[in-house]
Amino acid sequence: MTSIGSPELSKMFDAIAAAIAADKDRLCQLDGVIGDADHGIAMELGFNAARDAVAGLDLAATDPTALLNTAAKSFLNAVGASSGPLYATAFMRGAAAVKGKTKLGADDAIAMFQAMAQGIKDRGKAELGEKTMVDAWQPAAEAAGAARAAGKSLADSLAVALAAAERGAEATKDMIAAKGRSSRLGERSLGHVDPGAASAVTVIGAMAQSLNSAIPGKV
């Protein structure tokens, strides 16, 4: 039986922070082409702050909603750039999706994941095709939901989500940026992967790996 509680979610933030730290230089390089070359730094600051704040909680006495809200607040306090409000909203929406639960089943975990993606989309007022992290998050959330609805395990649903995110990020190469600082470049943004979409793949990959390791079986 799949069961994910606050200790497992804390480990998830450990995994995301480690993955972002390892990918920071690549993300900054991607951002250097169409932005301010600081995306990797901002993401590292945010996820390190979220990891540290969550680690300081009494996990036995903290439910997933409180943990995710703590992560949201700490991320926002650490990152003033656009990714701050986006990921803070993601975690707050994820928190709301699992309110009242102390343990998350597979359906709960997918609902949390989908709520995070919707939060990013709503906060950024972005749509598919505008060369943002939504181009990775939205396909991932849709794929995860469809896979779970078809009876796939949480592990398989998250694997499908990661593959969709990877395809979505790669597709941003062929898009003209319509949001954020990179939109000033117009057609010069063509041919480059959006750094926000690239970091979304890193985040989703770390989430999938961490949550999968917390699953005793293939439920």
Rank of each mutant, 00 (worst) to 15 (best):
104 L>G: 07
186 G>K: 11
15 A>W: 03
175 M>T: 07
8 E>H: 12
31 D>F: 13
167 R>N: 03
112 M>Q: 05
195 P>L: 12
63 D>M: 15
92 M>A: 15
62 T>D: 08
94 G>F: 06
49 A>V: 02
172 T>F: 05
139 P>D: 03
200 A>H: 12
60 A>I: 04
159 A>W: 08
8 E>W: 08
84 G>P: 09
59 L>P: 13
23 D>Y: 06
126 A>T: 10
43 M>N: 06
87 Y>A: 01
169 A>H: 09
71 A>N: 02
204 I>Y: 08
167 R>V: 09
211 L>T: 00
70 T>K: 12
121 K>S: 06
117 A>E: 13
139 P>G: 05
5 G>T: 13
63 D>Y: 09
168 G>L: 12
190 L>C: 02
184 R>G: 07
33 V>A: 14
32 G>S: 11
120 I>L: 01
79 V>W: 11
107 D>R: 00
149 A>R: 15
94 G>N: 00
209 Q>K: 12
156 D>E: 08
13 F>A: 00
125 K>M: 10
207 M>A: 11
85 P>M: 01
8 E>L: 06
85 P>C: 10
191 G>A: 14
139 P>Y: 14
142 E>A: 14
206 A>V: 07
202 T>R: 10
43 M>D: 00
14 D>E: 10
126 A>D: 14
146 A>T: 13
110 I>K: 13
206 A>D: 03
33 V>K: 15
101 K>M: 02
125 K>N: 09
134 V>L: 01
38 D>P: 14
102 T>M: 14
188 R>T: 03
126 A>Q: 04
63 D>G: 15
183 S>L: 12
100 G>H: 08
